[in-house]
Amino acid sequence: MQQEKNPEYRPVVFRDRGAGYAFLTRSTATSDQTIAWDDGETYPVVDVEISSESHPFYTGKARTVDSEGRLARFERRYGAGEGQGPGGTG
Score class of each variant (00 low, 15 high):
G20M: 04
G79M: 14
T64N: 13
V12G: 07
F57C: 10
S31F: 03
V13P: 08
V45M: 11
S27Q: 15
Y21S: 06
Q33M: 08
F57R: 15
F23T: 07
I35V: 07
H55W: 00
L24D: 08
A62G: 03
K61C: 06
V13F: 08
A80F: 00
G69T: 15
T59N: 00
A36T: 07
A19Y: 05
R70D: 05
T28P: 06
Y58I: 04
S51M: 02
G60L: 13
A36M: 02
S54W: 05
S27M: 11
S67N: 11
Y78I: 11
P11H: 05
T42V: 15
G81I: 09
T30L: 06
I50Q: 08
S27H: 15
G79R: 04
S51E: 06
S67L: 10
Y21E: 13
T28L: 09
T30C: 05
Q33C: 15
R76Q: 01
G18N: 07
R15I: 02
E53K: 11
S54F: 05
R63K: 12
T30S: 09
Y43I: 01
Y43M: 01
R73T: 06
D47F: 11
S31E: 00
G83C: 12
A80D: 13
P11Q: 10
I50F: 13
A36W: 09
T34L: 01
G69K: 12
E82H: 13
L24P: 02
F74Q: 09
A22N: 01
G83F: 10
V13W: 07
S51R: 01
V65W: 14
T34V: 09
Q33K: 15
G20F: 13
A22F: 06
F14V: 10
A29F: 14
A62F: 07
Y78A: 11
Y78G: 13
K61N: 08
R10S: 05
S52A: 01
T34S: 08
D66R: 11
P56S: 00
F57S: 11
E75F: 11
F57Q: 15
R70F: 15
T30K: 14
G69E: 08
F23E: 04
H55F: 00
V65P: 06
G20S: 15
A80N: 09
E68A: 04
G79W: 05
A29T: 12
Y78E: 13
R70H: 03
A36K: 08
V65S: 02
A19R: 03
D32E: 06
T25I: 04
R10K: 10
T30Q: 11
E68W: 12
T34Y: 02
R17H: 10
R15G: 04
T25H: 04
E68S: 07
R73M: 02
Y9C: 09
P44M: 04
F57M: 15
R10T: 00
S67I: 01
V13E: 09
P56R: 00
E68R: 11
L71K: 13
E53V: 09
R26G: 02
V13K: 05
F74H: 08
Y9F: 15
P44R: 01
H55M: 01
E82D: 12
K61G: 06
F14N: 07
P44D: 00
G20V: 06
R10E: 09
A62K: 14
